[in-house]
Amino acid sequence: MSQIVTANRLADGVVLFMDEAGGWSEDFAKAAIYSDAPAIAAALARGAEAVAASLLVDPYGIEVELRNGHYTPKALREAIRASGPTVRRDLGKQAEGLAPIPALQAPTEASHVSL
């Protein structure tokens, strides 16, 4: 099990990740990876403190996995949330170099095989 903790910044809604120092980063690459339940619980407790301090909204843990040597969110929803809309590559973290690697691909008509 590998997890990271994510939340949205209260003031502007930007997606944040908890870093190694227990702070919050906009950059997915800075996210601390937790590999056991007590570590996740401790991270979420820090998240709750940040909520109480009106810095964050809704911190929660997400599963990540290694792909080509890089951690990336396991669920598509979280991969999109950590990257930006797959239909607008010019927007979101993917446009700012803050997204997981490898980048999500938007499916195109040409990239699909027929039945």
Binding site: I80, P85, V87, E109, H112
Partner: peptide, 22 residues
């Protein structure tokens, strides 16, 4: 769809785009 919406379970815009191109 899932490109923006917190409730979505799948993407809808890319399907629309591909159908439109088709």
């Amino acid at each position: 769809g899932l490109d923006y919406c917190a409730l979505a379970t799948a993407r809808s815009i890319p399907i629309a785009q591909r159908l439109s191109e088709r």
